[in-house]
Nucleic acid binder design. Structure first.
Lengths: 106, 106
DNA sequence: AATGCATGGTTACTATAAGTAAGCTAGTAA
DNA sequence: TTACTAGCTTACTTATAGTAACCATGCATT
């Protein structure tokens, strides 16, 4: 019985916060505006998206870019730490295609 | 902008249910009794562990074994579908070691 | 026989996280 | 003026998670 490492625990905690995985997933495609993420994940509300982006920014996973135009436009991109999550996200995707049935709902 | 596949969405939903990732992680070591999982993940309560095991069993990720001894002992092991999650769990572990600082909390 | 402990839970209750709906400021288009 | 977009926030409701106590069964001690 391995002892659980606190770093591993906190990584799992990050993934167990709803939408975090999908947000990283869509941002792997590149820098996106707030509204683009909303459109990419239709069932994620603006409230939670806003919350999650702040949290992910605080954890150094995404960076927020505010344009100097008017009205302001806000875009987000992954940091190195965020891009390093690609293998996780890809592994989840691969597993989903191999093991989740057509009409199934998790 | 890729369209999100429902199978991928449900896989992310699975990981965003609290404790699921860690439960699979500890079960990758082999078949375990209920109490062993409790000890391996001290902050996970019996109530939630019981709940999660039922859900994971329902999703075909774990199998429940009930011994015919008295008192009954219950153990759990991963199915092929569950073991197929190993790359995900390993990727999370690897990322955690590389990107999460010593004293940090997710 | 009584006490305490372990296993594998359940029940009742509280706290936190997530979902829903509306509103807000600034600006564009008709 | 009305309607609509972007990027939020606020207030409120519902769902999920955490806490504590309890239960039946059996074992080991005292």
């Amino acid at each position: 019985m391995e002892r659980l490492c606190p770093r591993v625990e906190s990584a799992f905690a990050l993934f167990s916060k709803k939408w975090n995985g999908l947000i990283v997933h869509v941002l792997l495609a590149g820098e996106l505006y707030f509204c683009d993420i909303e459109k990419a994940i239709p069932s994620l509300s603006a409230r939670l998206l806003s919350l999650r982006m702040k949290e992910l920014e605080g954890e150094g996973i995404v960076v927020r870019h505010v344009s100097s135009t008017s009205p302001v436009r806000v875009s987000y991109s992954l940091t190195d730490k965020g891009r390093a999550m690609a293998p996780i996200v890809n592994a989840i995707e691969k597993w989903a295609y191999e093991w989740i049935g057509e009409g199934e709902r998790g």
